[in-house]
Each structure stands twice: as C-alpha cells, then as structure tokens.
C-alpha cells in the first residue's frame, strides 16, 4: 500500500464520501446524485463498464473505497460529455470520472495494464517533453508499450495505416528526430512542476 493511500485510509476511515469530496476533482458533487441512471444509459461504452457512474456514486456513499478506486470502469470514459449534458441534477460526471481515475492512479490503486491508464501516462510524458504532442512518437510508444516483440507485431499490423498517413503528409518520419516543439520547454516544465507541487501539498495536507 502506498504511503499516501495508508494515510488517506487512516484519515477518512469512516467516510469515503468525505475523502472523495476533499480530494477528487468535482468530488463535492457526488452526494447530489439521485440514482436515476441516465448517465449509465447515455454512456457510449456503458456496456463495458462494470460500474457505471450511477453505481460508482452509490458505492462511494456506501464506503466501497477499494472497489471504486481499483475499478477499471472510469478509465473507459471517452470524454463524450453525454452524461454531463443529460444529468438532470447537473453533476459534472465526466470530470468526476476523470477525477476518480486520477486519484486512484495517485494512490497506486489504478488497475495495472489498463490500456487507457497506460495511454494517458504515455500521452502526458510525450507532451511534457516538448510542450506539444509528437504524434509519431505517441503512436510508436503505444505500439511498443508491451515490449519489443509485441511492438513489432503492432507496427506491422498498422503498416498500411502509417503509409497512408505519410502519403497524405499527415505523419512525418522526421518527427522521430526531435520534431515540433515550443520554444520555452524548460519554462513549461518548471511551471507544471510548480502546479504539481501545489496540488500535491493540498492533497498531502488532507492526509
């Protein structure tokens, strides 16, 4: 168990709802859910979610901490915002799903090998290097995330796609060597480090 996870368990041992309200993005909205299920019925990948937003909200109130934070459901959010548009109580459900996923990752409870959790890390690392996304390296990192052998298989399976994109000048092999960048990369990294420190301190302070 990570140190932060232990500290949070200790601090909020009787109320997972309070923990979510204090530490999860837009978490203070969870108690407003009236369990109508419109979110569950509106989610484009709802069939794949073991725990729909409606269920997650009830589980949070029921104190099912481990089950919520280790769920892979919220990692299947496509950010379509259907649930936000339709929620009769006006809950910012998409943001709460993002917030729960991020908080689970922060505590080391996100499911290992969840493909979108892995992709989100690859994406963030990619954009932090140059301040802009390098699409070629992003694609290659996704292909090779499960090792070299699997990477070659993935790359071969998508060879035609890559060639099509290059022919249309919508992918550039030269991006492998450097590629697009902002000028002030070190400034951007410094700024984000500061933002992370502020956020970490806020959550540590709650632990």
């Amino acid at each position: 168990m990570s140190d932060l996870n232990s500290a949070m368990t200790e601090r909020y041992h009787n109320s997972f709802l309070r923990e979510v309200e204090a530490n999860v993005e837009e978490g203070e909205w969870v108690k407003m859910c009236m369990q109508c299920g419109v979110c569950a019925g509106s989610c484009p990948l709802g069939n794949a979610w073991e725990h729909t937003p409606q269920k997650l909200f009830m589980m949070i109130r029921a104190g099912k901490r481990e089950a919520v934070l280790s769920s892979d459901s919220m990692w299947m959010c496509t950010s379509c915002y259907n649930c936000i548009a339709r929620c009769p109580r006006g809950l910012p459900i998409t943001h709460i799903m993002h917030g729960l996923a991020h908080y689970a990752k922060r505590l080391g409870l996100a499911p290992k090998n969840q493909p979108t959790a892995q992709f989100s890390q690859i994406f963030w690392d990619n954009l932090m290097k140059k301040g802009r996304v390098n699409e070629l390296k992003l694609g290659l990192s996704v292909y090779f995330k499960d090792g070299f052998g699997q990477g070659i298989k993935n790359a071969l399976a998508n060879k035609q796609l890559g060639q099509n994109m290059m022919k249309a000048k919508r992918m550039n092999a030269m991006e492998f060597f450097g590629g697009h960048s902002i000028k002030d990369t070190s400034g951007l990294q410094k700024m984000i480090k500061k933002a992370q420190e502020i956020e970490d301190a806020k959550i540590q302070g709650n632990s």
Partner: peptide, 26 residues
C-alpha cells in the same frame, strides 16, 4: 506565440486538475 498542448481529453490521467488547467492558462 509559443502555444502549448492543452492536455486534450486524456491528459487527466497523469496530469491532475491544477497542472492540466495551468497548461491552458499559459
């Protein structure tokens, strides 16, 4: 001038709320 990535709809996983909002604030 020198605009940066917004974090898109997948940046939340690692980014967290304030770092993500700060990207757009810049």
């Amino acid at each position: 001038p020198d605009w940066n990535c917004c974090g898109a709809s997948i940046g939340y996983g690692s980014g967290g709320e304030l770092p993500r909002l700060t990207l757009s604030a810049r």
